[in-house]
Amino acid sequence: MGLAILFVYGYPIIRLFDFSMRRIRGASGPFIGFDNYRFVLRNPIFQEAVRHNLFLLVGVPILIIIALIFASLLFEQLKGWKFYRFAFFLPYILAVPVIGIVFSYLLMLHGALNETLRFLRLDFLALDWIGSPNIALKTLLAIIVWKEMGFGIVLFFARLMSVSEEIYDAAKIDGANWWQTLWYITIPQLQIVIEFFAIVTIINLLSWIFAYVYTITRGGPGTSTQVMELWIFNKVARGAPNPGMGAAASVILFLGTIVLIFTLLRLRMRVGEEE
């Protein structure tokens, strides 16, 4: 285990910092200090990529709200709840490249969604979901939410199943309505799982969305859906490779993620102390 971990994590992370300060040609290159960082931070496309990644974080509250509502609906175990759980979770196990390609056909200007909308006489809603620079990033977010919601729902639901039923019975006797039960019982009971889910989702939206972008938009139209991962990928694999800059961008992404997570954990601990 030790060897595998050192090889896959230890070596690359150490070399990453080294590479990020060199002008790489082939296997290594001359030391150039922080030039790569300066270039990356000033690069308008990279700046745009960072903004897009941050915009996608809107998905965190959206996903939490959807997951809360549907986990508590499942928890009431209405007729067919097992089927619903099966259906909600299904997108989560499908491969991102597969759903990426399916959605890019579904959402084409003359794809199935727009044909349906036109059929329903809702022409004004039949937008160019992927081809328009103003909408593409939002479409991307919607697809990510579509895929990730099942994870949240099932996660929250699994936790709810282990909450003692007495609390819910007591609420019912006291005449609490659906929203009151959700607000005063379900959310406090789920607090830890909600935090866990929020952190996982933040990590995903900052650094695990390459496959969506690559298969649906490739960063386009123009640079309207460019994200950090794709930028790094292009510095390694495409026509104009510049690994040194890719390394500097990786360091920024890596440290950014770590700082964000630690801030969140600190925040949580402080809130915990006050209580």
Binding site: I13, L16, S207, V236, P243, A247
Partner: peptide, 15 residues
């Protein structure tokens, strides 16, 4: 678990 794989690709690609 929180380290994103994209961070590792540059050094590993060269190696």
């Amino acid at each position: 678990m929180v380290v994103p794989p994209v961070v590792m690709i540059v050094p590993l690609f060269i190696l």
